[in-house]
């Protein structure tokens, strides 16, 4: 039985290939429960591939192959009985570009996950869950009077928070975020960062980011990837003041390449 203190994710010897091209090499790391971990590294280092492995987003990618283990709360997520759709409820994802469902209202965007997951809940309960998710995503106050408007009528930053609310509605244990702020202005970025910090106390968040200052601000841990290798994983303060590996030092001081 997994205890509250044991890591929520245990990743062992994870390697991944697209065709003949190996993009991840023997990644081993544990992700602690209710923490924020940033995955940092230059373009092409395998960060996005890595977090997509964590909820089996590559399953349908032609030529994709993976070895090693990803154990979520004691269960290997690539083992046979695991249903990828059910897995993605537990391991939610937010993408770089806000992508609310274009023909759906704000309310429906959040409710859709609950409906698709076959939960036939009474209307009042559904409304309650939508409100709770929008509150958690810090969008409720701005959106509560316009719930029937299209999701796409919101600003970019609001749309991104809507996507976070949508992911939160199905109560995931882990939230993956792939560059969630890179399409947003600084004010919206600040709101999302604040949200990440708050949510990090209740669920486990893994964020891919190019932005080192952002990684430093929001995360408890930082993993530095380079050309498919995990170079270093440590507490953020350690990574940004005194990293153990020379390559991390070169990257964070801008002397890379």
């Amino acid at each position: 039985m997994e205890t509250v203190n044991s890591p929520i994710l245990k990743i062992t010897e994870l390697s991944a290939w697209f065709g003949a091209n190996q993009v991840l090499r023997n990644i081993a790391m544990n992700i602690e429960r209710n923490t924020v971990t940033s995955i940092m590294g230059p373009s092409g280092c395998g960060k996005s591939t890595f977090i997509r492995c964590l909820n089996r987003m590559h399953d349908l990618t032609p030529g994709f192959r993976l070895s090693g283990g990803i154990v979520y709360d004691g269960t290997d997520i690539y083992s046979d009985p695991i249903d990828p759709v059910a897995l993605r409820r537990k391991v939610g994802m937010v993408f770089q570009q806000p992508n609310p469902f274009p023909r759906m209202s704000i309310f429906e965007n959040v409710a859709v996950g609950l409906r698709l997951n076959g939960k036939n809940m009474p209307k009042s309960e559904l409304a309650g869950r939508v409100e709770q998710s929008l509150r958690m995503a810090a969008l409720w106050n701005e959106a509560k009077d316009h719930l029937s408007r299209p999701g796409t009528s919101l600003s970019g930053g609001q749309q991104q928070r809507l996507c976070i609310a949508r992911a939160l509605a199905v109560e995931p244990g882990i939230l993956l975020m792939d560059e969630p702020c890179s399409a947003l202005d600084p004010v919206s970025t600040g709101k999302i960062e604040e949200l990440i910090e708050e949510l990090g106390e209740r669920l486990t968040i893994i964020v891919v980011t190019h932005n080192m200052q952002q990684a430093a601000r929001i995360s408890d841990f930082v993993a530095f990837f380079l050309m498919g290798d995990l170079v270093e994983l440590d507490r953020s303060a350690k990574i940004f003041t005194n990293p153990s590996d020379k390559r991390t030092e070169e990257y964070i001081t801008g002397r890379f390449g």
């Binding site: 080192m212 003041t241 005194n242 030092e249 001081t253």
Partner: peptide
């Protein structure tokens, strides 16, 4: 510059 690592120290 938001120095980090050795530069920050």
């Amino acid at each position: 510059r938001q120095p980090a690592g050795g530069d920050l120290r």
